[in-house]
């Protein structure tokens, strides 16, 4: 560990705001890229299952 204490780690030697905002935005975008396909897949499966059931009834 390079930093002496947790407070120093958060402060990043006066550049904390920059470093943490850059990391925050990046991680948020990465998470978004994972979550959106998962949600789309779930929605697709739901719609498709409904469509298949309807076709079976016919």
């Amino acid at each position: 560990m390079y930093f002496e204490s947790f407070a120093e780690f958060v402060a990043m030697g006066k550049h904390g705001a920059y470093v943490w905002s850059a990391y925050g935005i990046t991680l948020a975008v990465l998470a978004l890229n994972v979550v959106l396909p998962i949600l789309a897949r779930r929605r697709y499966l739901k719609d498709e299952a409904r469509r298949l059931r309807r076709e079976e009834v016919k």
Partner: peptide
């Protein structure tokens, strides 16, 4: 030179 900001 850039100290900790380079961690980006």
């Amino acid at each position: 030179y850039q100290l900790d900001s380079y961690r980006i």
